[in-house]
Design a protein around this nucleic acid. Structure first.
Length: 553
RNA sequence: GGCCCGAUGGUCAAGCGGUUAAGACACCGCCCUUUCACGGCGGAAACACGGGUUCGAUUCCCGUUCGGGUCACCA
């Protein structure tokens, strides 16, 4: 003979046949080595991949890897209203393109591995019901029939009486319903949610140790939070407890907006008879907003989306290295000491994470990225720029692709060696950097520095053109330039010129500036000799002629 | 408003009772140098405020202020 609670739970969950014990057996403790941490990222598919989610995922990955543990992906798709088509795939491909590997769950779009699934909450509804049924049987959960209007009204009276808002204690109306009453309302077809009968007492305090923030103390939860929404789908809180227990998560590392619900979560684990995981709450990456700080916003800040970095052409390594400097600030020192070591060798530690949110620093990202790019060889850079341009700058792609050897040649200038150039922070800097290598990108509107006259410049260019040896190496080229100086009234040695500036029209640097302007249209460029060799005799001569004509007008 | 958390140069940050309060980015100057970049050297720039505790507080405690988070059938 069933007691009233059993009758109630049976009526609420006619389809449930399994028991919590059976689920325990189905998802046994993982056999991992002592101290191995099992972490996870559990995003909801509400849009494109957000920097904050990526950052949190990276911290989880690092934590698992540092302990020979495991990192998995679970999809929290319990809110159909907010769900975005393809959202999960975008997150997964994002992880993949940044080399953030998943060990279990969704590891790529439409690819699931592991024995602790399903890894998608919408497919786990039956599992949640097993536990809710059990809770109802034990009197630890109950159906609540309060309408939205009733709850709103209750809220108003609470506010008027200046007491805490929420569904708790005396305000938890349906708590008082007998199992028989509840049963008859269910049989009548009244819609309901299932709430926890909270054993908490607001006047007691609960303490826990957050792995990042340290010891935190808060009042116990006494709210009868919703376990199952009226459509039978669980809330985040309940799904978190069930999933992370069954999937044997040891460390829950998530955004710190969750910190205030830890008392709820701890209570849930206790009521369910689960051992609670360790928590680590990651501070958000912030953005400066006229004087103040705020979380990076999907709507307002383009840099909040991982797409942004791909569009701008930041190498994945740059983003990863930058994020790591935010995560553990001693990463920079480590990197300086170990310039070529793989990131996985870095001793990452949750305890080294900042307690408060860091402002996103584009300057810093650019600096990190310049270093990353400076360390790449010409082939790598060329391939990366080609790939970037193909996706985001078709015209530039066609130019480069028309002559790949030429493209590689221009990106090879001054690359490698002990003093690499750091001109580019991202691939989208490349079109401007490379413009003058192409005739249609050459800007002929340049002007001479003020201390040089057009007539002198023309004389320089004519003399240079006559002496121009396309085969000269760097040293010979520069010596040739110096040799031209005396006859033109310029000083071949800068130091000498500085001693007696009145005796000359300028020095060899001015001569090279004139040639540089004629050939590139710019005052500042990488090594001119290399540029001219790459451009080739014909183009160089054509530009010299054009410059002479321009200055002779 | 209740409950949490935080506060060191413009930014990211070391620091754990006695320091000339590191370092990095950005900024400025100088040097190197045919330009630029790279590199080197130097500069400006900080412990939010008020009370305690202590021989001594950036460090510990309490308030204030400011900033952030959270108070849903969203995650």
């Amino acid at each position: 003979m069933m007691n009233p609670l059993q009758q109630l739970s049976a009526a609420m969950f006619p389809d449930v046949t399994a028991t919590p014990e059976q689920l325990e057996e189905q998802y046994p403790a993982r056999s991992l080595k002592e101290g191995a941490r099992v972490t996870r990222i559990a995003p909801s598919p509400t849009g494109y991949l957000h920097l904050g989610v990526f950052f949190t995922a990276m911290i989880n990955r690092l934590t698992a890897s540092a302990t020979d543990g495991l990192f998995y992906f679970r999809l929290e798709d319990t809110d159909k209203k907010r769900e975005v088509e393809g959202g999960a795939d975008d997150i997964l491909t994002g992880f993949n393109t940044y080399g953030l590997t998943l060990d279990e769950g969704f590891v790529a779009p439409n690819t699931v591995v592991g024995d602790y699934g399903p890894y998608q909450q919408s497919e786990r509804v039956g599992i949640y019901h097993v536990y809710v049924k059990s809770l109802v049987e034990q009197g630890l959960a109950y159906p609540c029939f309060c309408s939205e209007e009733e709850r709103a009204a209750a809220r108003e009276t609470q506010e008027a009486q200046k007491c805490r808002t929420g569904y708790y204690g005396p305000f938890a109306k349906c708590r008082a319903l007998s199992p028989e009453e509840a049963l008859s309302r269910i049989q009548r077809g009244d819609p309901y949610v299932v709430r926890l009968r909270s054993p908490g007492d607001e006047s007691r305090r609960i303490a826990f140790d957050d792995l990042i923030k340290g010891k935190i103390e808060m009042p116990e939860n006494d709210e009868d939070l919703v376990l199952l929404k009226s459509d039978g789908v669980p809330t985040y809180h309940f799904a978190h407890a069930v999933d992370d227990h069954l999937m044997r998560t040891t460390h829950v590392i998530r955004g710190d907006e969750w910190i205030s619900s830890v008392p709820k979560h701890l209570q849930l684990f206790r009521v369910l008879g689960f051992r609670a995981p360790k928590y680590a709450h990651v501070s958000p990456i912030m953005k400066e907003d006229n004087g103040g700080k705020r979380k990076l916003s999907k709507r307002k800040d383009p840099e909040a989306a991982m797409h942004f970095y791909a569009e701008q052409g930041y190498p994945a390594d740059s983003v990863l290295e930058y994020l790591l400097t935010i995560a553990n600030s001693d990463f920079e020192d480590w990197r300086r000491a170990n310039p070529d070591a793989p990131r996985s060798k870095f001793p990452f530690n949750l305890k080294k994470m900042s307690v408060s949110g860091a402002l996103f620093d584009m300057n810093k990202l650019n600096d990190v990225s310049k270093n990353v790019i400076a360390a790449m060889d010409a082939d790598t850079v060329t391939e990366a720029i080609l790939a970037w341009a193909e996706a985001y700058d078709k015209a530039f792609y066609q130019k480069l692709n028309a002559d790949r050897a030429f493209a590689k040649g221009l990106f090879a200038i001054d690359r490698g060696g002990p003093k690499p150039r750091k001109d580019m922070a991202k691939w989208s800097d490349a079109p401007a950097y490379a413009a003058y290598f192409f005739d249609d990108g050459f800007d002929s509107s340049w002007e001479l520095p003020e201390h040089l006259t057009a007539a002198d410049a023309v004389a320089v260019l004519k003399a240079y053109k006559d002496a121009y040896d396309p085969t000269a190496d760097k040293q010979a080229w520069f010596d040739g330039l110096k040799a031209l100086c005396p006859a033109l009234g310029f000083c071949p040695e800068v130091k000498e010129y500085k001693k007696n500036p009145d005796r000359y029209k300028g020095h060899v640097g001015d001569v090279s500036t004139i040639v540089r302007l004629a050939v590139t249209g710019r005052r500042n460029t990488p090594d001119l000799c290399s540029i001219m060799q790459l451009l080739g005799k014909d183009r160089v001569n054509a530009r010299l002629d054009a410059a002479i004509a321009k200055l002779s007008v």
